[in-house]
Design a protein around this nucleic acid. Sequence first.
DNA 1: TCTCGTTGAGGAAGCGCTTCCTTGATGAAT
DNA 2: ATTCATCAAGGAAGCGCTTCCTCAACGAGA
Lengths: 335, 335
Amino acid sequence: MVTLDDVAQQAGVSRTTASRAMNGIHTVHPDRVAAVLEAAEMLGFRPNPAARSLARGRHDSVALIVPEADLSQGSNAFFSIALHGAIREVAKSQQQLVMILRADGEPDEKFLRYIESSHIDGALVILEAHNTELPRLLARTDIPVVYLGRPVDSATQPVSYVDADSVGGARLAAEGLIGAGCRKLGVIAGPASMGITVDRLAGWTAALDESGLDSRLVEHSDFLTTGGAAAMHTLLDLEPDLDGLFVMSDLMAAGALSTLRARGRRVPEDVSVISFDDTVISTMVEPKLTTIRQPVEELGALMVRALGDLISSTDGAPVRITLPTTMVWRDSVRS
Amino acid sequence: MVTLDDVAQQAGVSRTTASRAMNGIHTVHPDRVAAVLEAAEMLGFRPNPAARSLARGRHDSVALIVPEADLSQGSNAFFSIALHGAIREVAKSQQQLVMILRADGEPDEKFLRYIESSHIDGALVILEAHNTELPRLLARTDIPVVYLGRPVDSATQPVSYVDADSVGGARLAAEGLIGAGCRKLGVIAGPASMGITVDRLAGWTAALDESGLDSRLVEHSDFLTTGGAAAMHTLLDLEPDLDGLFVMSDLMAAGALSTLRARGRRVPEDVSVISFDDTVISTMVEPKLTTIRQPVEELGALMVRALGDLISSTDGAPVRITLPTTMVWRDSVRS
DNA sequence: TCTCGTTGAGGAAGCGCTTCCTTGATGAAT
DNA sequence: ATTCATCAAGGAAGCGCTTCCTCAACGAGA
């Protein structure tokens, strides 16, 4: 193993100067910087990150906390894409991304101890389905954390998050269905405990109210396929004449589609469907789903930058960013 | 920050003894161990991992190297499930899992430098589609690596891997189709450069040969949906009377299904289909796919254990483990 | 010519932990 | 009663890096 001392010796300078040269400190003469860099290159020097973080008291690593439930169900497309955005950004900023599992049934205390002893500079959390306890838990630590997806109690808590414009996205869906001539509208929503459910419902309700349509036909489910199928049954029982449907995930939409088929409704002739996510699923079902697209990869990258800001900020004011959603037209809406 | 010195002082012992007590070294009197543990608990002591790894010269962290291509295409179900298995196992063994991105187009040298300077104890690679360069590249480092999925040149290289029994899985598929009465059989395979393609083809061909059926109808594709759709066209052009199809991924099978529908073939009445993976996709298409299931989560966990063995082994002999595959019956095979 | 501010570079301490080496105490063997 | 293993515990060095503090050298201003 080649150390900084070796490099310094090779370059004919002190270790101090070598360190400065490697770190781009400007009080070193350019000639020496060049000599050090050349020596480092020649010797194949790789700074020891452990020594560095010990000396600096910083760790240059951020954690991505993953609830086990999110890993074992769903299609994971959302997770993977957000991870992609995050991991790129982390690499760019010379940090390490360490994965931390929030195991099912693991006691709160044990988990908190674990992440506090991980000595990370900050944490990222992708708030996918089913996942409402993490914000509450992490609020008890002093680790800076940024969420992807608004935690439901963001109004009263100083949490930082990045999110897609759920309100606007739901409004797009509502206007799309209304524009297609639908008049009996229903929605298959996510769990009421989640921020994205609340926001999408708000946008949806507002748009329907403005058009003078009944916005009360709402069935909550779990973002998954079988949940979507079941919710669809309920909705059809409540309103047999349903002609427009907004579903808050592609997975639930796939379930809803099979229920609609089973109960003799044609899509889009009898009922138009708009879903949310634009994952691979939406082009894999019949008919292909018109769906609201979120900039997930950008959000993944953004949360890393936001965390960087949060860590280096002195006032500790929460960082909150929202990106617009768009509608992707396919075949599930009557034209 | 509370250090080991604080704990030692609180417990009335030396730092050395405190360290030994914390690490379960047996030459410490039980009473003292108890005192140290109690002091550590009381003070909320969390060992500094940077200091520890500096002193030990070990890092207790393993990398999961992810090619960017794998993150940006496909459904990622495979990746997420393997990650799930791996992350659980890593947590269990008190290590950290750090994610390393192999960016598209990143120069080999730069990547190698990067991972060599990451100071990890070993690396994990999930060999998903499109990914044949990594083994060649990593062979140039002295980092212990375990692959999930057999690298194609494993016969000549001393690589370590865990894998599902692809040969046996393909054989199951072949026997399933033959048993359903199919006689004109075709296969949509993955890229010929990948180990899993080679192995599955071997099992398939062997089974067909034994039954005296023609095994030459093979179309290579890319494991993705549109590739599967295109390959299906080619196959139907080559053999219009095709009545049995084996597809090496659910994603490609979804594409094949839409081509079959477009060309007026009913599944399973006209052609029976068996695919590979058993992801969520397989229950989301119409008809639901009969498919070969791989124990992906177990393989994820297994590769972590294998890496541990590899790291601590002295002879450096490669570790190779294969787990059986099973068939999941659904609706795409004529009964 | 003398003093003073600058700039560039090195000495040395220290980050928090592990572990080699040494020492003191205890009981068994002579 | 003396010598020796044996066991428990501490002293101190050191892992590889950063950074505070100090110092030498230099040119500018008086």
